[in-house]
Design a protein around this nucleic acid. Sequence first.
DNA 1: ATGTTTCCACCTAGGTGAAAACTT
DNA 2: AAGTTTTCACCTAGGTGGAAACAT
Lengths: 210, 210
Amino acid sequence: QEGTENRCEGVGIQLLQRDLWAKFHSLTTEMIITKNGRRMFPVVKVRLRGLDPERTYAVFLDMAAVDTRRYRYVYPSSRWMVAGTGEPLGEQTPYIHPDSPATGVQWMATPAIAFDRLKLTNNKTREAQGQIVLHSMQKYVPRVWVQEVPSGASWADLPRLLDTSMANCAFFRETSFITVTAYQNQQITRLKIESNPFAKGFRDTSKQKE
Amino acid sequence: QEGTENRCEGVGIQLLQRDLWAKFHSLTTEMIITKNGRRMFPVVKVRLRGLDPERTYAVFLDMAAVDTRRYRYVYPSSRWMVAGTGEPLGEQTPYIHPDSPATGVQWMATPAIAFDRLKLTNNKTREAQGQIVLHSMQKYVPRVWVQEVPSGASWADLPRLLDTSMANCAFFRETSFITVTAYQNQQITRLKIESNPFAKGFRDTSKQKE
DNA sequence: ATGTTTCCACCTAGGTGAAAACTT
DNA sequence: AAGTTTTCACCTAGGTGGAAACAT
């Protein structure tokens, strides 16, 4: 049994890979943001229950600011410390899960609804391309929205159909993270290299010179 | 100006990359079919006109047998010759373009509706995975279908919504090909290597020994 | 100083034709 | 003999962290 579940209006949103997230969270998760956009690792993956099988839904992800602070990684203690006030998160366009829209049956049959293509950036011009724009050195948490939409809704209609009144919205404390443009805590780096197949750094140290 | 256009019930289906297709066609196009499925090259790419902007459509591709013959590549003459009767093409499940369903506006705004993920196979068990099953050494031509569907239709509904009475169906003579499990005509091989970025054969002949 | 950007070697993932091995 | 399958080196495409260059 992996995952905790949040219930909102009868819809169950279960976070997958909870153990992996917890490991990162215990070290204070850092997520790289770049100009061109960087994927998240770990990836937010959820499973849905309690949808009406016949109705049509869209699934969104956006980021909520955990607080209004800016953080700094302080070396003597190797810890994240508050370092002033952060910038507010501007008006966001939520990321639409690429399988949207789909029926309740289809969503519930999916073992892992993964937001693996989502990219984080510090570049406002990337918003138009569906990336999520965040400020560096601030703390955020991903939120998953499950929104019922009319059965005829097309991809282009989805953004304005999202009811942002916090119904059917879930977030998971262990997925919160601090944005960085370069890793601060080497333990985070090591954990990413160990667990992300794309990240291998310099494993073969004999190659570093030659 | 690239492309010829077929008109069916007011819907215009225009083949793109006509010059590339013509080059292959003049040598008798061969398409590899394998057990695991192989992409087509060139890729069928079309552009649509004359759709109702507000209505919803799905786009399909299937293969039609050009004739009922089996072919053999004969070496002294280096030509394809008829070599008996082929096997009939069984009941096909048309390939659904992954952007389906979408509105007329969305289809018409797409500069190239490409069937680049489509795979051809000689393995019946791959049909369930959306690949197109063909017989080797026979001649086929791709057909593109544009089908209006109810606005609420989901991906799973699309196959049974296709009206196969040949309305809104187009094919282009220059895209016909003979299926093979290994290339016969070396000129075809050379042309594929020249034009397909994934195919490079052994360009650097000095590497063939070492 | 501190934080950001650029570039790069190193990966994953998967599409190619060539050649060898296999089948009939 | 003729056709198919397997394997493999060689590609494209693109996701990583590291280091150096850059910015403030």
